[in-house]
Nucleic acid binder design. Structure first.
Lengths: 164, 164
DNA sequence: CCCGAATATTTAGCACGCTGAATTTCCGAG
DNA sequence: CTCGGAAATTCAGCGTGCTAAATATTCGGG
């Protein structure tokens, strides 16, 4: 079982948190210099890349709920970056479309956070990248299984959670 | 330079995001079953572990701004989990203290998200953990340097950011 | 055709999280 | 001692994110 040395865990958790929060911070900083917020930049970059998207499609790609993206789009519309258009094929869906102003702004935005990651990965050689991918996969697989187990437990709350 | 294969990058980024968001989701779920939110649980676990904390100390440990924690503590106080007490040594600081109810609740909370991580790390052997720690360290060091560079660039905005 | 289930979006209400400005208290220089 | 700067907290305002409920539209079966 090789005891997991709390220090090891802490170091690795720290690294994961660092990588995640730093990439968000960088996006935010770039956005700020353009008078926008991080999620707003993410949205217009997605629209630039994929073309018009329904609200549901956009929220799925942003890993957020529809109700959250409704508000985001409200503000982008207010600021003249996007427009809403009812789809003619299915009138339940609204298509979000970049305005010329929005498209222009999107073009000025470097892909920074992902790019920074890619550059960092360049500092590893191919063998190291393979190792890293394999290790992370092992971790995520294990956690995924753990989570399923935990969710099942919660689904049948025969006993309340307790210490340890 | 070994080209960084977009697919590799995507896979690794995905894993990092997964590990981060999943650990937050689990905390949130546990909290929900106790009628609390994720950050609230984090706060009372910190107070349980460290004893009374000034608002600044608490916000530092939670990696959030003081103004954010003011609101969090407001809600915990409203719900009878903590009290505010002016420090007698330095009357600028308010000490946040668990109430008996808060302490009782803290005792019922398993450390889940960190624990889950630790268990997952158990599925790796010692050599693999060393590898992982080393690789993540290499990545974070590289990104840290990148970020410094980027911040310097932004500090002297002689030219606006442009594509690529 | 019509009715109910399914799908897409919006609304309302709450909790975070941030920035920037105000307030209170402390501390050191003169 | 006093005055000005520093430090700790709070307040105001905004954007993000969630859940639950309401609304609008589509689609399939009878």
């Amino acid at each position: 079982m090789t005891a997991p040395a709390k220090e090891d865990t802490d170091r690795i958790v720290e690294a994961v948190i660092y990588l995640y929060t730093e990439s968000r911070r960088v996006t935010k900083e770039v956005a700020r210099s353009l008078g926008m917020t991080g999620p707003q930049v993410t949205a217009i970059k997605l629209l630039e890349g994929f073309g018009d998207l329904s609200l549901s499609a956009l929220s799925e790609r942003m890993s957020a709920k529809n109700s959250t993206i409704t508000g985001l789009v409200d503000r982008l519309e207010r600021d003249g970056m996007v427009t809403r258009a009812r789809s003619t094929e299915d009138r339940r869906v609204t298509l979000i479309r970049l305005t010329p102003a929005g498209r222009k702004l999107a073009g000025q935005i470097p892909v920074t956070s992902m790019e920074m990651f890619a550059r960092a990965l360049c500092s590893l050689d191919a063998r190291e990248r393979d190792q890293l991918r394999g290790l992370l996969r092992k971790l995520t697989d294990h956690i995924r299984k753990d989570v399923e187990q935990l969710d099942v437990d919660n689904a049948t709350p025969t006993r309340e959670s307790h210490g340890i």
